[in-house]
Amino acid sequence: MEKEKQGFLDFAYQLYKTMKTNEISLVYEGEVTQEITKTFTSLTEKSLSKNAESNTVQKKVFNVMVECLQNISKHADSLTDEDEERRGIVMVSKGDDSYNIITGNIIKNERVQSLKDSLEHINSLDKAGLSTLFKQQIKESTISDKGGAGLGLIDIAKKTGSKLIYQFKELNDQVSFFILTSTIKRN
């Protein structure tokens, strides 16, 4: 029992050290709701303005966080069909020259290929191409039942000016874990 307690204390300290070393300002795993989205974005906004980050960067970070979190709250699948909660992980880290927003969520294997295709397509475009795609998509799209317009990833790529970094890890024959990293340059 004592040993187990000690193990947790060590883990907490290791986690703290890792977060400090990598300047991770936020880690979360759980249900992603509008309330969570509002809380995290306002926390991050406060910490950025405390760090005297430029307005432009603050707005971009805010923007990308909202889109990433609302993507999870609208599209995340769950491990089992009975489970309706939309969960995910969220991490915000600060590097020397950029902020990284990392999100992860479960996705059904049958949806992986089309998401991969969209990501590849977005990554193949330059700024002008993204703007054209955005304008085309915004005209054609309709707001889904979930309240999305299918524009989130294009918007993230446009606003960050960086390629979307992603990975799919197959968990079993039903679902995979989708990880997306968005990078916002600090100058």
């Binding site: 805010f62 889109e67 317009a149």
Partner: peptide, 12 residues
């Protein structure tokens, strides 16, 4: 000051 992509569709 800021709008999300779902709002951008509504603004259109």
């Amino acid at each position: 000051e800021y709008f999300n992509t779902a709002s951008s569709k509504i603004i259109l």
